[in-house]
Simulated assay, not measured.
Amino acid sequence: MGVLKGKTALVTGGSRGIGRAVAERLARDGARVGVHYGSNEGAAKETVATILAAGGDAFAIGQELGVPGDAEALWAAFDAHADGLDILVNNAGIGASAPFSSISEEEYERIFAVNTKAPFFLSRLGVERLRDGGRIVNVSTGLSHAAVMPELIAYAMSKSALDTFTRYLSKVLGPRGITVNAVAPGIVDTDINAGWLRGNEEAWAGAAAMSALGKVGEPADIADVVAFLASHDGRWVTGQWIDATGGSLA
């Protein structure tokens, strides 16, 4: 408890799912957390309220990602609430709704705009605010290392680019003592997966069977890994792709 006291964090896509779990965990560890949302203001305010009720500190900031000027606008909103940054978690992302045979250029471009371009420029502008010894954690996916869901090819490609960005950025920011890592979840029980996973015993069993631990991941499973990397204990880990799939790639 309190290992992040005095630190300020920003979690993109922090209103639901993995992002919410990360925001709540960092706040529980003592950080003041900016909870970013793209469109669901109600969910972001609920996350903030939960953090405040637990004795933490948080604020919500809204900005659609994947559009021109998104990074500048998000940081302008952040600056109205905080003076400087210690932890940036690039969690916000979208998946593909169409397979390789039918995906449109528009959807392809949107996926890369949100999943790859937005973290790049949020980080580029964010390092002006990020204090020495800070942390950047990018949320990737196990699909960037294993082609187990070929229908998500565009999504996997966008995250593979994010993995490369992680490695290179760790070299750029290393002299300032800033670590940069990617955390790669497998199948996690979140709202985005609810449509095909929850209430479907066959789908749930199949997802659980993919993990060496025989279970479906929970948002907290990922949040705890992010929290380690964000803490002092993670100071000697940088430029890494951390498999947080529960052994799905073993």
Rank of each mutant, 00 (worst) to 15 (best):
180 V>G: 01
212 A>G: 15
228 F>Q: 08
241 W>E: 13
183 V>D: 00
58 A>M: 13
170 S>N: 08
209 A>W: 15
195 G>D: 15
203 A>S: 15
92 A>W: 02
14 G>R: 00
243 D>I: 12
185 P>M: 06
14 G>K: 00
55 G>Y: 06
26 L>F: 03
21 A>K: 01
204 W>L: 14
31 A>K: 01
73 A>N: 12
130 L>V: 07
178 I>Q: 04
203 A>L: 07
160 S>L: 11
74 L>T: 04
97 S>L: 15
110 R>K: 15
101 S>T: 14
131 R>D: 09
235 R>E: 07
211 S>K: 07
12 T>Q: 01
211 S>W: 07
135 R>M: 05
157 M>V: 12
27 A>C: 13
54 A>C: 10
111 I>S: 05
111 I>C: 12
202 E>R: 15
166 T>S: 02
168 Y>C: 07
135 R>E: 04
111 I>G: 05
20 R>Y: 04
47 T>V: 09
181 N>R: 05
81 H>P: 03
38 G>L: 05
19 G>T: 03
3 V>Q: 10
30 G>A: 07
141 T>P: 04
162 L>A: 01
114 V>R: 04
13 G>H: 01
21 A>I: 10
154 A>R: 02
44 A>P: 05
185 P>A: 07
125 L>T: 08
86 D>K: 00
72 E>H: 09
47 T>D: 07
166 T>E: 03
69 G>R: 03
78 F>C: 00
71 A>F: 07
165 F>A: 01
206 G>M: 13
199 G>K: 13
222 I>S: 02
123 S>L: 10
95 G>Y: 10
137 V>H: 00
104 S>P: 04
68 P>T: 12
234 G>E: 11
19 G>W: 00
215 K>I: 13
6 G>Y: 15
134 G>Q: 05
9 A>M: 03
4 L>C: 06
228 F>K: 08
86 D>R: 02
44 A>G: 09
107 E>A: 08
21 A>F: 02
43 A>E: 09
245 T>H: 07
215 K>A: 14
36 H>L: 09
148 V>M: 10
165 F>I: 09
131 R>E: 12
116 T>I: 12
216 V>C: 09
87 I>H: 03
240 Q>L: 15
30 G>V: 06
110 R>N: 10
168 Y>R: 04
65 L>A: 06
146 A>N: 08
163 D>N: 12
72 E>P: 07
166 T>M: 11
161 A>H: 06
130 L>H: 06
113 A>E: 04
